[in-house]
Computed example of a mutant assay.
Amino acid sequence: MFFNTRRFLFSVSVILASAACSPDKPKFNAIDITGADYAKGFTSTDHNGQNRSLSDFKGKIVVLFFGYTQCPDVCPTSMMELAEVKRLLGADAEKLQGIFVTVDPTRDTAELLKAYMTNFDPTFIAFIPTPEQLAVVAKDYKIYYKKVDGKTPTSYTVDHSAGSYVYDTRGNVRLYSRYGSGAKVLAQDIQTLLNTTP
């Protein structure tokens, strides 16, 4: 009896190990956060004045980034990379939706954000949460942002998290892409999601 039990447990461990190493599980360059109980989405006004939520974009891969228009380096670099990702996707380019969430709703007006998005790609959309909404969203998304005073009341900067969240075509959060990973790497992950998500 002891032998049979041990053999059974061994068989179960082999099955579990095989499942864990299954080639069916997609491999990503970014951090795989499939099944995360955070970053599940929110509703906000976009730069066109419409009330939008992530569920509006089901059927597309959504890449969501937090930033602000007066950011000197990280934000424009990230948005340029996302525009390059779209180019690299070729025929699948229309399946990508870039979303920029401002962490500076005081200065980032709808007009300013619309011009900012158009500068990178006219299909990209900016969300403009109120300061109160932003505090809630930042907590849910585990992102950091903090106003840093400048020489004048309006010349402040905002320190903030620099990664991007990636959602599959069903609207489920799947990946966290670190800043600086590069357009080719992100494009590969998006293509993998498109190929493995029904």
Rank of each mutant, 00 (worst) to 15 (best):
Q70A: 14
L113V: 03
P153I: 06
N172G: 07
T152M: 08
G90S: 12
M79D: 02
Q50I: 06
L64S: 08
F3L: 15
F8W: 13
L9D: 04
F100I: 04
A19R: 01
R107Y: 06
V63F: 04
A17F: 15
F120P: 03
K142C: 00
L64T: 04
Q97D: 03
G171H: 08
L16S: 10
T196A: 11
K146D: 08
A91N: 15
A20Q: 07
F120R: 03
S55T: 14
L96N: 05
I15Y: 10
G67A: 05
Y179E: 07
R7D: 11
P23S: 14
S181L: 14
C21I: 11
C71I: 06
E132P: 05
D140M: 02
N29G: 12
V158M: 15
F8H: 12
T102Q: 12
F10W: 12
P131M: 08
L54Q: 02
S155D: 15
D37V: 06
H160K: 09
F66A: 08
S181P: 01
S55P: 05
Y165E: 00
I31W: 03
P122V: 09
A187T: 02
V137R: 01
V74K: 07
H47Q: 13
L82Y: 06
S155T: 15
T152Q: 09
T106W: 05
P131Y: 09
L175G: 00
K95Y: 09
V148D: 09
K142S: 05
F3V: 15
K139D: 10
T109W: 03
V148S: 11
T154M: 13
D159I: 11
G182M: 00
L89P: 04
A187E: 02
D108M: 05
V185F: 01
N172E: 14
F124I: 02
A187N: 01
L175V: 00
T109I: 04
G98F: 03
K146F: 05
H160A: 04
S22M: 00
R7K: 15
L175H: 00
A126G: 02
T77F: 08
A91M: 11
L194N: 08
G150W: 04
Q188Y: 12
A36I: 07
F127M: 14
Y116R: 05
R174L: 01
D159V: 11
K142T: 00
Y156G: 01
D46G: 07
S177C: 01
P23T: 12
Q97W: 06
L16V: 14
R87H: 13
K139V: 04
N172Y: 08
G49W: 00
Q97F: 05
G59T: 02
K147V: 11
R178A: 15
L82D: 06
